[in-house]
Amino acid sequence: MANLLEIKDLEKSYLKVGVNFGGSRVKILNGVNLTIEAGSCVGLIGESGSGKSTLARLIMGLEKPDKGSILFEGIPAKQWIKNNKGKMSVVFQDYTASVNPRYTVVEAIAEPIYASGAVTDLDQRIDRLLVKVGLEHEIKNRYPHELSGGQLQRVCIARAIATNPRFIVLDEAISSLDVSVQSQILKLLHRLRIEMNITYLFVAHDLQAVSHLCNKILFLYQGQIVEELQSGELAMAKNKYARDLLASVIPFEV
């Protein structure tokens, strides 16, 4: 399969806050290399603070890398995003802050549709999207604070798939939901991926969720991808960090 996304030697550092005026920088990403094939689902695992969200923000073009390249189908990320409006999307972990509190459900879902230009039969499109993510019509004119966590995250997913994207970044999209809702949302995400042929980058800090959904799992540790495994061959991890992580979740004899 062709590569949708190719990242080479990506580096990113942030200014350390509160350490006098020395201006010392902390390197969060230190030479990240990865590829994501079109149509696949890639999981990105790493402990809290390892820079997963930072990597996601760089991929989405929200921040500039210090060094290295991010190429979508051979084109620099910024250019690709400009040429392919609405073809990339994102779902965040913190659903409460993901929707403007002054937007109704309909307004939130309509926003990316307007942004990508094509506005024909908006009402029906939104109805279809609501059905697709398993939401009732009566919530259409509600505000975010009038929805449950699971409902709101479904709204976020509906909004993310509204423009038929080819690539979605899911930054811990299920981590702050409770367990029963997590599995429902996972199933929903899996179904949507198959139906709409979307490529996922699934960021998570716990392995269990990812191992079901993803074809390939990347381990981010100390600013680098230290291990890359196909989902069937988790037991074959060579890197110590990846093995420790695996051992803590799955009772293999490793």
Binding site: M60, I81, K82, S89, V90, S98, E111, A115
Partner: peptide
């Protein structure tokens, strides 16, 4: 995050300033 989403979705600067920043 809603402004991050709007940026990724390709909303114009004018839209983000008017609908998200100024209203907020």
């Amino acid at each position: 995050n809603y402004i991050r989403f709007a940026k990724v979705a390709g909303c114009s600067t004018g839209h983000i300033v008017r609908k998200h920043l100024l209203v907020g």
